[in-house]
């Protein structure tokens, strides 16, 4: 549902609809970026379990596949808890402007939406 444009369009009773925050690109806050070396990753899920933003992306088999940069705020917990040293943190400034804006690396937010629906 699109944002209400006038008071007549506001749903009654202060209601907001479930899971609508999936449109909110919190990745724009990020000042540093985790990058996963999938070669080193042992899919222990420690990062997945500790991520406050549920931004560890997984593939169809449920293996760790990357970072969901649409949502990742860059706190660095994933790198800190990784026992295989597979995640490194880089300043966002090292990535191109275009890359930062869209969060084009990592999983597509559409996929994230799919298993929430």
């Amino acid at each position: 549902m699109s944002k209400p444009q006038c008071w007549q369009e506001v749903p009654l009773a202060t209601v907001a609809f479930g899971a609508s925050a999936l449109k909110v690109q919190t990745g724009l806050w990020r000042s540093s970026r985790p990058v996963i070396d999938t070669e080193k990753c042992i899919s222990c899920y420690k990062c997945w379990l500790q991520c406050p933003d549920d931004s560890i992306a997984t593939d169809d088999e449920g293996k760790v596949a990357g970072i969901n940069l649409f949502f990742c705020k860059g706190c660095g917990i994933c790198a800190k808890v990784c026992p295989a040293d597979a995640i490194a943190i880089y300043p966002e400034s090292e990535f191109s402007e275009e890359d930062r804006e869209g969060g084009k690396t990592g999983a597509d937010p559409g996929e994230v939406g799919a298993h929430v629906g």
Partner: peptide, 19 residues
């Protein structure tokens, strides 16, 4: 991992918050 989330992404808690 495959399960429907109770709390989704897109919340605006601070980076690194434990809550």
């Amino acid at each position: 991992i495959g399960k429907k989330r109770t709390l989704t992404q897109g919340h605006r808690m601070c980076p690194g918050c434990g809550a």
